[in-house]
Design a protein around this nucleic acid. Structure first.
Lengths: 329, 329
DNA sequence: ATGAAAGCGCTAACAC
DNA sequence: GTGTTAGCGCTTTCAT
């Protein structure tokens, strides 16, 4: 069966399509009784609007979301809250995962533009401070507002919702230092990751402030589990730290596994600290004090910023939003 | 700036829009040199097609995907593989999460229909054997093919990709029984969940076959962590099992935590078995033998089935696909 | 091999 | 308060 369209309802109701259109989207412009009649008929006939036709003329009321991967619980939660906030405001989301690939990311942006999205929220693939993908200028030309998520890029007319990474590092540092450990290992992200470096800076700040005599070693890995695991395993062959700090959830998981390989008793021989919560830790009875970020909030702010930009047609007013984390023991 | 459209390219190339359309989508219908010229111009001008306009007349080359939640790694992986398979075949995916709510699920289907999707892949919210949501008849009327994911529904003209749950239960049962435990606790899903009951049946089959004298207790919880945790905690106040079998990943996580509360040493005082892998277990050095399903495969089959249905305009030919899991120690 | 015209379903602009 | 017309960008049909 073909889809019911406005004209079908119009015929039954003995009015024109435009009246039906108005009855369904701007009811105040139609005489109440006509309106009611039309709405009832639409309901009975099972009318479902056609966004393709609608979006061709007016705004699509759709925003695009691109994240590097939805397997990482951090992004999964962020996506969830973004979708929820957007739906509440009457927007739909098209979600893409870039699989950490630059070309897939570029394609995703093109596809979103193809769908006439009104705005985009992107957590870009690269941690690199100098990553400035080509699609930014395209989006700017088309006046499609962009809100960056978590990973910063230096582009004009782009705003973002970020975590206060220095603050996170600092807070976690304070927490760790208070324990009088002898030797602490910090496992960071890649050397030119802004996020990683800011977290590291915060940690060092806390350490210096404490003036403690603890030995602090730093390994630069990346924000994935595998490399962190390998490097920590090598490190543990030579040193015996009391505590390991992972600068994101994936790193911490890798460090945990490396310690298991070296027969450490997690949580007693060696203590773990993490930025980003590891939710399953408590299922295994391991306490991993961490910096938790309100991901619900994260998504909310991203959507709010974006929709302001869309509906005001003025990207310039937008400011960045920095979200602070809290220490969770 | 406005988006570049076919007509803009046409003007520059001194041809009509339709020729440009052909050069870009069916190049074999255009003289090679004209074609090449047009393609180059399109490239230079940064042309990005408008799916809204395209989808208005022809198929949208878009499929809808609805899962109960993307936070659960099982669905996150499935979604990832679905998107990947679909993209490879030239389809885009619109992803919705129903948040385990019937009304959100219904809305998601409507929204997808609004976007003129060519087909839908759904993991329905309910485990209940008798859940048959209203939108099925709508989709059928509109001749939009549906492929069910993981959770079965008895509806005509609907096919699905399922796990072989009896087989999973049986295989895991064999594995558990071989250990000569004294008392085993099975934590199942809700009493009228088909999936849970099939897994349970498989387990019992393995137990009976072995004729072992082990005591087997069964708790009916649901497929979430919280309830399982609470019920197992109560149970452990009265009994002391050597092994716990969780019938999905969330249940197993709950059972683990309950055991921690009761001061069991995970993996030595008490052993865990699970259907669905718990990837973080190895990071914590706990071995949880499980039934692993090839989720990559899962998504691949779902997409393949759906696209066959879409492109053959014949939903009747479709058959269900049952995927077997493998034991992973 | 190329083009002209019509139409997909909806709504903004302009009547009445 | 309601209707007519035209057009969004693309493709299908029918001509050349």
């Amino acid at each position: 069966m073909r889809k019911i369209k406005l004209a079908d309802i119009a015929k039954v109701a003995n009015v024109s399509s435009i009246t039906v259109s108005r009855a369904l989207s701007t009811p105040e412009k139609v005489k109440p009784e006509t309106c009611e009649k039309i709405q009832k008929i639409a309901q009975d006939m099972g009318y479902i609007p056609n966004f393709m036709a609608k979006g061709l003329k007016s705004k699509s009321k759709t925003i695009g979301v691109i994240v590097p991967t939805i397997i990482n619980p951090f992004f999964a939660s962020a996506v969830k809250s973004i979708i929820r906030s957007a739906n509440k405001t009457g927007y739909n989301c098209l979600l893409f995962s870039s699989d950490e690939s630059q070309s897939i990311e570029q394609n995703a942006v093109n596809t979103l533009i193809s769908y006439n999205i009104d705005g985009v929220i992107i957590a870009v693939i690269s941690e690199d401070e100098h990553y400035t993908p080509a699609y930014f200028s395209t989006l700017k030309k088309l006046e499609i507002p962009v809100v960056l998520l978590d990973r910063h890029i230096d582009a004009p007319h782009v705003c973002g919702v970020y975590l206060d990474n220095i603050d996170s590092g600092y807070k976690l540092g304070k927490e760790v230092i208070s324990n009088n450990f002898q030797r602490i290992l910090i496992v960071s992200g890649s050397p030119n990751s802004k996020v990683a470096n800011a977290r590291l800076a915060g940690l060092k700040m806390a350490a210096e402030e404490a003036g403690s005599s603890v030995i602090i070693d730093v390994i630069k890995a990346d924000f994935n589990t595998e490399l962190a695991k390998r490097l920590v395993q090598d490190y543990l062959g030579q040193h015996k730290p009391d505590a390991i700090i992972g600068l994101n959830n994936q790193i911490t998981l890798g460090a945990l596994e490396a310690s298991v390989v070296h027969n450490y008793q997690l949580g007693s021989d060696i203590h773990f600290y993490s930025i980003d919560e590891i939710k399953t830790a408590k299922n295994f009875g391991i306490s991993i004090p961490c910096i938790r970020h309100d991901v619900e909030d994260f998504g909310y702010h991203a959507v709010t910023q974006l929709i302001r930009a869309i509906e005001s047609d003025n990207c310039d007013k937008l400011s960045d939003i920095i979200i602070r984390g809290t220490v969770v023991k």
